[in-house]
Design a protein around this nucleic acid. Structure first.
Lengths: 233, 233
DNA sequence: CGGCGAGTTGAACGTAATCAATTGTCGTGG
DNA sequence: CCACGACAATTGATTACGTTCAACTCGCCG
């Protein structure tokens, strides 16, 4: 069982807004679990036995073709929810990109709890709707954008979701963040190869829109121009 | 107001399973509306004023870049739900591909009703989860599949969702259906141009996996081979 | 029969993929 | 602390797939 009262993501995860009693009850169903970078929690097609809240760390959701081509279909941040409630098998694999801490529930226990707590279901619905919107915007990127547009879009999205991106920018500060994806993974999100990702990054650097002090750090120097390139509305 | 008791999609739309009283109540909120092929109901970015169930007809959901490139992010069939509940603005446009009949609700009325009916919310959640799975599988197609794989995937998906595809095939019958999308629209779903779509279709026809008696009709002659090409699991 | 829009087919081009070699970075052990 | 090895990333040369531009065909309705 878990004590939810000092949960670091308690006010933004789906648990937020639950009554004290409900939270207590949910705490009895969940357990904290640590996973290591690279570890795969769930495999595509496997029975979906668990769902979880992300407490810390970043994970990827991915789907593969029979011959091994992999597409990353989602990147999951702290306070996000993972797993496929109300479904038999998982539509995608879930793999930790960094060490991570999760709050895990068996799917059956969670499903049961959710059915009795409409407010939880409502929050889950909100999140799922948002995820769907995000996925569909990514379809626009994958279907219609060029390599450089894709890279620009990714940098902005990750910067925003990592935290504070836009806020810092508004304050006129340079935007700096650690990219949780390596080049291969960036390629797998964007539908590009590792080489193309690399080339486009160097191009953006040459154009002084970004800087890359080391392989994981990204500095956004000219958000306006990058945004323009990304074709963001 | 609407009489839900003889609704043709009443047992498969989100309304299914509601109590008689609830259904009666929902019927008071909704009104039937006909839309003509080509008509756009909601524009991307506009305030999301309505949601609806599709009674008959087929519609597309699409998102565009600033410079006019369009990606179709969803195709909607009878008994499907359209619109963005619990959100201010619509993330995509909704356009009728055929004449269609809808059961329309104002978003505020629907949201209010949904909040009081957990079973409706639950069904909406299920649907949204399914849509999300579908969108993510489409991301694999857009990010990693070749032109011919994409075409094969589309033909199978449409055949399945148009009705009875797999069922007929199981009975050894030739699978025939009317493609609701023209070549341009097929391209916009698949992230391809009209010319590439055309060429790949002729190629599949040459390989005797399909036949194209006229521009809208598709006959699936060899589902197994098509499935294999589509890299479907 | 003529004209128009949708679709097909062809030729040339361009972007990103592929293949290949090199450089850079980090962790480990001498 | 530096040298080494392994892996990640960059850079270069070539290829290939799908796009683009353009001409042509088909089917349909006036």
């Amino acid at each position: 069982m878990t004590d939810c009262s000092h949960c670091p993501v308690g006010d933004s995860a789906i648990c937020a807004g639950l009554s004290a009693e409900a939270l207590e009850c949910l705490g009895h169903l969940g357990r904290k679990q640590k996973v290591r970078r690279g570890q795969t929690l769930v495999w595509e097609g496997d029975e979906a036995l668990v769902v979880a809240n992300v407490i810390s760390g970043i994970l990827k959701l991915s789907i593969s073709t029979a011959d091994g081509r992999e597409q990353i279909v989602g990147v999951v941040f702290p306070s996000d929810f993972i797993g496929r409630p109300f479904g038999k098998e998982s539509p995608h694999s879930v793999t930790a990109l960094t060490d991570a801490e999760l709050c895990v529930f068996t799917r059956s226990a969670f499903d049961g709890f959710a059915r009795q707590h409409p407010d939880l279901q409502n929050r889950l619905l909100m999140r799922t709707l948002t995820e769907l919107d995000r996925a569909r915007h990514w379809m626009l990127l994958l279907g219609k954008k060029t390599a450089s547009e894709r890279i620009a879009s990714l940098l902005l999205e990750v910067s925003d979701r990592m935290g504070d991106g836009a806020a810092k920018a508004a304050a006129g500060l340079p935007e700096v963040f650690e990219m949780p994806l390596d080049r291969q993974q960036m390629g797998d999100v964007l539908g590009l190869t590792i080489e193309t990702v690399s080339r486009q990054l160097t191009k953006l650097k040459g154009a002084e829109m970004i800087d890359l002090p080391n392989r994981r750090t990204v500095v956004i120097q000219d958000r306006a121009r990058l945004r323009n390139l990304a074709l963001a509305a």
